[in-house]
């Protein structure tokens, strides 16, 4: 664990620090991006990406599909994750810079090493391309996000994976069908634990 700087000065400013969770990672990417007071009804389905070009969108969609594929339950595509990622990125300038530069770098390195763009590779080859990126991303500390000097392809994978996980597990397909969330109900009594621990 990195030792925090002693006597570090932090100006927290106007944001009240009474936060329910001590982890930045629990603040989903898009959490602060939307207008206050959106309607609690299913959001209108977007049909066109706002930020990504058609090629970029196809690439991000394929990566999301490979990260959370359809199995016996729906995957990222059925849960609308690519449009979610576009919505997040279209509202976040830092993410826009990251995607624009890293998609270009990813595409170049794919062509250089495999002789073809990513989308023209077969599934096994696509997984081969992503595997080392995932391993490098997994090896990073959670706080490494955005640190300079990382390979842009790793940064791209990590961003797509994080946003895919956020978007999928907060969707109805992910939260209810896949994870089996069953809270938000009325219970007469809270059950006493009768497990053998």
């Amino acid at each position: 664990m990195k030792a925090p700087r002693r006597e570090a000065l932090r100006i927290v400013g106007a944001i009240s620090s009474t936060c329910a969770f001590p982890f930045a990672a629990n603040e989903l990417y898009a959490q602060h991006a939307g207008p206050h007071g959106e309607s609690p009804a299913p959001p209108p389905a977007r049909t066109q990406p706002e930020f990504f070009t058609a090629e970029e969108f196809a690439l991000v969609s394929r990566m999301a599909d490979l990260i959370i594929p359809a199995t016996s339950t729906p995957g990222a595509l059925a849960a609308g994750v690519p449009m979610y990622i576009d919505m997040v990125v279209s509202r976040n300038q830092e993410a826009q810079r990251l995607f624009r530069t890293s998609i270009a770098a990813f595409d170049l390195s794919c062509r250089a090493r495999r002789g073809k763009p990513f989308l023209e590779l077969d599934e096994a080859a696509q997984i081969e391309v992503l595997t080392p990126l995932c391993e490098a991303a997994d090896a990073e500390a959670p706080s490494a996000q955005g640190r300079a000097g990382r390979k842009p392809e790793v940064a791209l994978f990590k961003a797509v994976k994080s946003m895919t996980a956020d978007g999928y597990y907060t969707s109805k397909a992910g939260l209810i069908d896949e994870l089996g969330y069953s809270g938000n109900t009325v219970m007469a009594e809270f059950p006493v634990c009768t497990h053998e621990h």
Binding site: F21, F23, A25, N26, E27, L28, L66, I67, I68, P69, T71, G75, I127, L130, C134, D138, P142, K161, S162, A165, D166, Y168, Y169, T170, G174, L175, E178, L179, Y181, G183, N184
Partner: peptide, 24 residues
Amino acid sequence: QNRRAVGWARMVKGFGASYKQAVK
């Protein structure tokens, strides 16, 4: 935490069907 909070899922290692299974 309540079980609607799933921000941790992105920290689970790997990708693909095995990743999905690991989160579940």
